[in-house]
């Protein structure tokens, strides 16, 4: 597990910075909830005037007057977007950085198979996502407790599971792309993540492109769909887990045979 330990060491600073950054924004947003609650009449008028734009951010489906409704809206914007970007950046450089930084010539002349390298890097990536989730969830939970408003723990856990699943899917997709790249492709990862988030906005705005629901993991992990009686949509959960597994297999088959560019 040398590579796993090494990757955790290399990635922990980035994971902590991203998580603390997102957690701070989340805490600040939550801390203004009492004022939001008191000004609901004004906020509802404002959301109505926003029309389709409010729909894009699921404001038409969430009750901002309840702490969980407000949290789902904030988590959807901050944690999903922040977590999605973090996952894409981490995943897309996971394999290609060895070639881009010329460390492949140090790592691969050791008696380790490329499959074992990929497995350990995948495990490290998932653990770093867990670190991100643990920090952001703890900060949010403490803030919700501090607000003193009653909230559903089931909804809270589902929202954070959604963020983790989103990171998992984006991470696997980007890890797969990383197997085909030989240089730093952070820009591509960021673009991909933002593009998929934009797809969610289009779906919510009901522009009539249904196929987008199958293309973006933001759709079924959206916090607005995970509060109240609803839970993860079984079909989309299976689809995304299946796609993630397929991405990993494609990534490995490419990585096992590729010529390392040093």
């Amino acid at each position: 597990m040398t590579i796993l330990r090494h990757e955790l060491k290399q990635g922990r600073r980035m994971a902590i910075i991203w998580a603390v950054g997102c957690a701070l924004i989340e805490v600040l947003s939550l801390s203004v909830f009492p004022k939001v609650k008191n000004g609901m009449t004004l906020i509802n008028q404002m959301l109505e005037s926003m029309g389709t734009l409010a729909k894009a951010f699921a404001a038409d489906r969430l009750d901002y007057g309840t702490v969980m409704g407000y949290y789902a809206a904030e988590a959807g914007n901050i944690l999903s977007l922040g977590g999605g970007l973090f996952a894409a950046i981490l995943g897309i450089s996971m394999l290609s950085k060895e070639e881009g930084r010329h460390t492949a010539e140090y790592l691969f002349p050791h008696p380790v198979s490329r499959l074992w390298v990929l497995v350990q890097k995948l495990m490290a990536m998932l653990l770093l996502f867990l670190t991100f989730s643990a920090i952001t969830a703890t900060a949010s939970w403490l803030t919700l407790r501090w607000l003193g408003e009653p909230f559903s723990m089931v909804d809270f856990v589902q929202i954070h599971m959604g963020v983790y699943l989103l990171m998992l899917h984006l991470g696997c997709l980007c890890l797969c792309i990383s197997a085909f790249m030989s240089r730093d492709s952070t820009g591509l990862g960021i673009g991909l993540s933002l593009g998929m988030y934009f797809m969610l906005l289009l779906i919510n705005m009901e522009v009539g492109i249904d196929a987008l629901r199958y293309l973006t993991p933001y759709y079924y992990t959206e916090a607005a769909k995970l509060v109240g009686p609803d839970s993860f949509h079984s079909f989309f959960l299976k689809l995304n887990l299946g796609l993630s597994a397929a991405f990993l297999m494609i990534g490995f088959s490419r990585y096992a045979t590729k010529d390392l560019r040093i």
């Binding site: 010329h102 010539e105 140090y106 008696p111």
Partner: peptide, 14 residues
């Protein structure tokens, strides 16, 4: 590779 030691011409480390 267990029995080989390799030195690249330009080594890069983490």
């Amino acid at each position: 590779l267990k029995r080989v030691g390799y030195m690249p011409s330009e080594a890069a480390y983490y």
